[in-house]
Simulated scan of single mutants.
Amino acid sequence: MRQPALSSSERRVLCLGGLAVVCLAAVPWFSSSYATTAMRDALILGIFALSYDLLWGRGMVLTLGHAVFFGVGAYGVAIATTQLQWSWLQGLILGMGAAMVIAGAVGYFLLYAGVRLHFFAVITMAILLITRQLATSWQSVTGGDVGILGIPGIHLSLLGWDADLSDERSSYLLALAALVLSTVLAWRLVRTRYGLVLAAIGMNEFRAKHCGFDTSWHLVLVFVISAGLAAFSGALYAGTAGVVAPDLFSILMSTEVILWVAVGGRGTLVGPLIAAIFFTRVQQEVSSYSTDLWPLMLGVLFLVCVLTLPQGIVGLFHRMRSSKGEAPVTKDAVAGAGGEP
């Protein structure tokens, strides 16, 4: 986890990020109860987008079933708190552990077998459909189509310290703190030597393998880390929303997280966070008028992003900055550099 020295651009991003966190922390004191709750859910889904950006943005592993891990984390907390009478923290450990075990098993059998690209995506989508069917059919545990209701709010008790985080203001601040912590840990991870190896695998796995790296092991590892982070966001969602349902395992949710990462900019970490928060709020407002309108808008946005923003909004911003900073290439400049005009 050794970190290189901070660059000037990274310092600017950290300063802007700190200012954004301060502004977000003030939301509960200046917004309505509905706006605070909606923004809290958007922050939690931002962690979900961050987990997928680690997998697809860095390792270039495309999956259509990432919602499996979000749902497993949510159901882990729901089952632990309502049926086993465990605490939220114990449910968090259960959900994250189950998600990481599933990711480790799937990743080992598929990635070590050489399954990549659209083959991996299709198989993970099949796993998502199987998981949704299991959540619907296993009524004695999952509640069936209705789901699990009455999940208690988040209450932390650790080493003699008790904190009730079930009210909307406390749960919002918890979601914000979890988002900041997850972002910092992910950022520090991608700046390490492991992050560089992962980026090299994403750019050209064949070359990285012939440089001596066990590419399958690195991809399985990032798959497990990504699954754990997605389950963490699902556990937060269950503890704050108070209800879980099989819709958490929907293809629509897996498609939405792809859109967030694609629009925000793959591999940028910050871009998918911004896109997830923005689109979640837009979805909440649009769905208040029509529940059928949002999937249509989602498909249109995805097509527009693929056709016009292949590098996402952050990539477009970087291109604009680089184009402004580059001097025009003239014949005199080329001749002065020793080349032919």
Score class of each variant (00 low, 15 high):
residue 5 A to F: 10
residue 7 S to N: 15
residue 8 S to L: 15
residue 11 R to H: 05
residue 11 R to F: 06
residue 20 A to Q: 00
residue 26 A to C: 02
residue 28 P to D: 01
residue 33 S to R: 05
residue 42 A to K: 00
residue 44 I to S: 00
residue 45 L to P: 00
residue 55 L to G: 01
residue 57 G to Y: 02
residue 59 G to W: 00
residue 59 G to K: 01
residue 73 G to M: 01
residue 80 A to D: 08
residue 82 T to M: 11
residue 82 T to Q: 08
residue 84 L to N: 07
residue 88 W to K: 04
residue 92 L to E: 08
residue 96 M to D: 08
residue 97 G to Q: 12
residue 99 A to R: 05
residue 100 M to V: 13
residue 100 M to T: 14
residue 103 A to N: 12
residue 109 F to Q: 12
residue 112 Y to I: 05
residue 120 F to H: 12
residue 120 F to G: 08
residue 123 I to P: 12
residue 126 A to Y: 12
residue 126 A to M: 15
residue 128 L to D: 07
residue 135 A to L: 13
residue 135 A to N: 03
residue 139 Q to V: 13
residue 148 I to W: 02
residue 164 D to G: 00
residue 166 S to A: 12
residue 167 D to K: 02
residue 170 S to E: 05
residue 182 S to H: 06
residue 185 L to W: 10
residue 187 W to V: 08
residue 195 G to I: 03
residue 200 A to W: 08
residue 201 I to G: 07
residue 204 N to L: 10
residue 209 K to H: 15
residue 211 C to M: 15
residue 212 G to E: 10
residue 218 H to Y: 12
residue 235 A to V: 07
residue 247 D to H: 09
residue 250 S to C: 11
residue 254 S to W: 02
residue 255 T to E: 02
residue 257 V to Q: 05
residue 258 I to L: 15
residue 263 V to L: 15
residue 265 G to D: 09
residue 266 R to G: 09
residue 270 V to Y: 10
residue 271 G to K: 10
residue 275 A to C: 14
residue 290 S to K: 11
residue 295 P to T: 13
residue 297 M to R: 00
residue 301 L to M: 13
residue 309 L to G: 11
residue 311 Q to Y: 10
residue 311 Q to F: 06
residue 313 I to A: 12
residue 313 I to G: 11
residue 315 G to A: 08
residue 325 G to R: 15
residue 328 P to I: 14
